[in-house]
């Protein structure tokens, strides 16, 4: 089945591993400066806002708002059978932090709608936060 061909994420990178460790416990975590609270996403070690090097993985509720999306009608890579939709959401409790998620088919979407994450395994069992419209 094509799903098995989906590439899993690297989960051992120095800067991003904490995201996947949290996801393995079905939690959404945003790397955050321990000194000033600045969200550091894409995750990184140094806070550009206050100059601090102390960071933590702040667990936030897996709720978000739909920022934009696209429905892809062509096969671009094995494992992702068209049509499928990529959503880009803004995490509610981490302003400015945006993430993308996969939805099968051509769901009816509207910018600004409420979204929530479900943690779903990809081919190697790694849990990915996937974003769905909140009914």
């Amino acid at each position: 089945m094509s799903y098995a061909e989906r590439p899993p994420p690297v989960t051992t990178d120095y800067d991003t591993a904490g995201f996947w460790a949290a996801a393995s416990e079905k939690k959404l975590a945003v790397r955050t400066c321990s000194d000033c609270g600045q969200s550091l996403h894409m995750p990184k070690a140094y806070c550009h806002s206050c100059g601090g090097w102390e960071t933590e993985w702040k667990v936030v509720p897996p709720t978000a708002t739909l920022y934009t999306w696209t429905t892809t009608e062509r096969e671009l890579r094995a494992g992702f059978k068209p049509p499928y939709t990529i959503v880009c959401v803004e995490v509610d409790e981490a302003p400015g932090v945006r993430m993308v998620g996969y939805l099968p088919g051509r769901p009816h979407l509207k910018v600004g709608m409420a979204m929530h994450a479900r943690f779903e395994p990809t081919a190697d069992g790694t849990l990915l936060p996937q974003w769905y419209p909140t009914p």
């Binding site: 994420p9 991003t16 934009t68 671009l76 993430m99 990809t122």
Partner: peptide, 30 residues
């Protein structure tokens, strides 16, 4: 596995976002 080493592709490719066209499509939608 995809990503790491500052590429941040781990946040995109495993979700099916593989092509520049998809990013520009999302910008166009916006």
């Amino acid at each position: 596995a995809i990503g790491g080493n500052g590429s941040y592709e781990e946040f995109f490719v495993p979700f099916g976002m593989v092509s520049p066209g998809q990013v520009w499509a999302m910008l166009a939608q916006r």
